[in-house]
Amino acid sequence: MIDYIAISTLNDFIFCPYSIYFHNVYMDTDETMYHATPQTRGRSAHETVDKKTASNRADDILSLPVYSEEYGLMGKIDVYKRKERKLIERKYQLKQIYQGQIYQLWAQMLCLEEMGYAVEELAFYEISANKMIPIKKPDNEELRMFRSFIERFRNYNPEETPFTVNPNKCRHCIYCSLCDKTTENNVYQ
């Protein structure tokens, strides 16, 4: 049986594999203990997708659960525009697009395609700027690199992988004050 990887953890794994541990430990607790303003805004921005009120167009599919047996992935998409065959990931604000965010979008695309949906366009929608940011679909080499990344994720063993503290990342981690790996203070305090 496949242990599915949650699409939402792909960016977290690149950022810091240890943050996935914290996310799971604190999942059922009061988010105000560790969520900073960016996460609170992001959660609020996602409410309209989760409640399926972000669009009233009949051809828009919102908050669809997706999975891929081939890649061993599962998650939810934000918006799929059927007529345009366009997959959109909504973000409150995007100062920079990270590889992990692109991997999340590719993972959603691969799941949708495996489920029988045609995806011709990918984009991030930045809510705060009311801006659509097109992302190119992965080519064969990028898909090979993505598969390799998924295998690294699947085979990751924290006991066998030395943990390296990255002070810049730690300062921007919502779990920084809860983490035993660093003495950094995060920028949100």
Rank of each mutant, 00 (worst) to 15 (best):
A129E: 04
Y67G: 09
M145Y: 14
N130Q: 09
V119A: 01
N168D: 15
Y98W: 08
L122N: 06
T32P: 08
Y117L: 05
Y21L: 09
F15W: 12
Q93A: 14
T37I: 15
I61L: 11
K181M: 11
Q189P: 00
Y92W: 15
T9A: 02
V165W: 06
P138E: 03
A118M: 10
S177Y: 11
Y117C: 00
E142S: 03
P65V: 05
R57M: 10
E142P: 14
P138Y: 03
Q96G: 03
M1G: 13
S19R: 14
C170D: 10
S8R: 02
Y156D: 10
S63F: 14
E113I: 05
I174G: 03
E159A: 10
V165R: 01
A118N: 11
Y188T: 05
F146T: 02
F15E: 06
N155P: 08
P134K: 01
K83L: 13
A129I: 07
T29K: 08
N168R: 13
Y103M: 03
F163H: 12
Y18S: 07
N56M: 14
L64A: 01
F153Q: 06
Y18R: 03
C176I: 08
H46N: 12
Y80Q: 00
I133K: 06
H23V: 07
E31R: 15
L64M: 09
T183R: 10
S63H: 05
Q99Y: 07
T53S: 06
M27Q: 14
V66R: 02
D12C: 04
T29N: 09
K81N: 12
V165T: 10
N140T: 15
E160M: 00
D3L: 01
K95G: 12
N24D: 01
I135Q: 04
S148P: 15
S68R: 02
V187H: 05
P167R: 10
A6V: 04
L94W: 02
I135Y: 05
F163I: 08
I135V: 10
T161D: 07
Q108S: 05
R152L: 13
I133L: 11
F13Q: 06
Y125V: 01
Y18D: 09
F22H: 11
K131L: 13
M1D: 07
L143K: 12
K169N: 10
D139R: 12
Y125E: 06
K136A: 04
S8A: 02
M132I: 04
I20A: 05
Y34E: 14
Y21W: 00
I127D: 04
E184W: 02
K136M: 07
H172P: 15
Y175G: 03
P167E: 07
M27T: 09
C170P: 12
P162Q: 05
E160H: 01
L110I: 08
M115V: 09
Y80V: 06
R154T: 04
C170A: 12
I77S: 01
K81F: 08
D59W: 03
